[in-house]
Design a protein around this nucleic acid. Structure first.
Lengths: 227, 227
DNA sequence: GTCTATATGACGATAGAC
DNA sequence: GTCTATCGTCATATAGAC
């Protein structure tokens, strides 16, 4: 079978391919506008203007502005899912301590989020009054949560997370940490680099704090906290 | 001198008082709309509609929509500042352990934020593309940060926070925790109660985690972590 | 698929009568 | 202080020619 560039893995004729390229260009421009003007600042007219076409032409590709938001949401959800899969692929066999495993995962999430503020806001905040993503577009976002949860279950099975904690509690605390870093960084200093951002640079310390709490007591440790 | 209801503590004639009442009503309605439609969903026309007046009448009280946002920002900043002052008044003398002191402060912040999502978003996120608060409106927000920092300095002076940590690091980590709880709760389940919200209910555990990290080693503890 | 033309309406804001 | 009337701009969206 021929290699294919689409999700359906089906060969396309030139017309279809050109159409998809145009759709990608529309989404590029849409994200660009949302990055500059805020997520709620997207407008059909501005997209058309930047593409050098007229607003009605966009309705060939998207039934409405809502559909455009939905496509951006889907694209962002797929991108962050792929990114996190890639950066947490070895969790099941990674020989390093919990701190290192989690720090890599956290860095991956924070880095992507800070580098893609428009997607992050659309996916994880609710900045557009009327908009709700469709079920299809939401699916990869759900998959990301399931992926994270599976990783945490694996970490607990491997003994890197205390056996007596509810894995969902551990996961919720983890998402709170990451969301806190990202939201503080994006709200207060969006243009600082990830490496020396006032908040992103706190991640290693926060991960250490988290691991002190959720790691099982060290072998022979007399200080096991009871909870 | 007569008691006064205004910040200036000056007596007002009926005209001025009536004017201030109207302004307060406008701000009430504006916050109501922002709560329902999202912060960026505020519109002059909708405010007028709900007040039973015509849009141009609002320009007697506010020079522009921006000025209206600014007044809401000021009001919210003053409210959260007053709320946090009230709930952290005893920090300098509170005899309880760090965990209890911080949990109360955290609960105060989280509760207020979840109960006032419109203010929270306007104050701590950046959901309105063009809007920047004026210096006057920003002042109480700055004061809140200074107030928090002063409290942390006090806690460190009293020996409740390890002497070897940078108080600004401790404060940043603290704000990350609180911001994480609030943003996760507001984004994912805004209508859950604070007491049993999926994320707000994690606060005690997160505070425990934080205190384990930042409290000085207990007297005679052989496990003092070196950092 | 892109265009022109247009329907329809919201918005922020101003002028000027009362 | 409130109104009517209006300006100008922008928006989403549709119809129909090419």
């Amino acid at each position: 079978m021929l290699s294919a560039v689409t999700i359906d893995a089906m060969p396309l004729d030139r017309r279809q391919r050109r159409r998809l390229e145009t759709i990608e260009e529309v989404l590029d421009v849409a994200v660009e506008i949302m990055t500059e003007q805020g997520v709620a600042g997207l407008s059909i007219g501005e997209v058309a203007r930047r593409m050098g076409i007229r607003p009605p032409s966009l309705y060939v590709y998207f039934a409405s502005k809502e559909a455009m938001y939905d496509a951006v949401f889907l694209r962002g959800a797929r991108a962050i899912l792929a990114h996190m899969r890639e950066h947490t692929a070895g969790v099941a066999t990674d020989p390093r301590p919990l701190h290192d495993v989690l720090l890599d995962a956290g860095q991956a999430m924070v880095t992507w989020s800070v580098h893609h503020p428009a997607y992050t806001q659309l996916l994880f905040w609710r900045p557009v009054p009327g908009f709700t993503p469709s079920e299809q577009s939401y699916a990869p976002a759900v998959e990301l949560v399931e992926h994270s949860r599976a990783n945490f279950v694996t970490l607990q099975d491997r003994g890197l997370i205390r056996a007596d904690v509810d894995v969902d509690d551990a996961l919720r605390d983890w998402t709170i940490l990451i969301a806190g870093v990202v939201s503080q960084q994006l709200s207060n200093a969006p243009h600082e680099s990830v490496d020396d951002g006032a908040f992103t640079s706190r991640l290693p310390n926060l991960v250490a704090m988290y691991c002190d709490h959720y790691s099982p007591p060290a072998k022979g440790n007399r200080n096991a906290r009871k909870r």
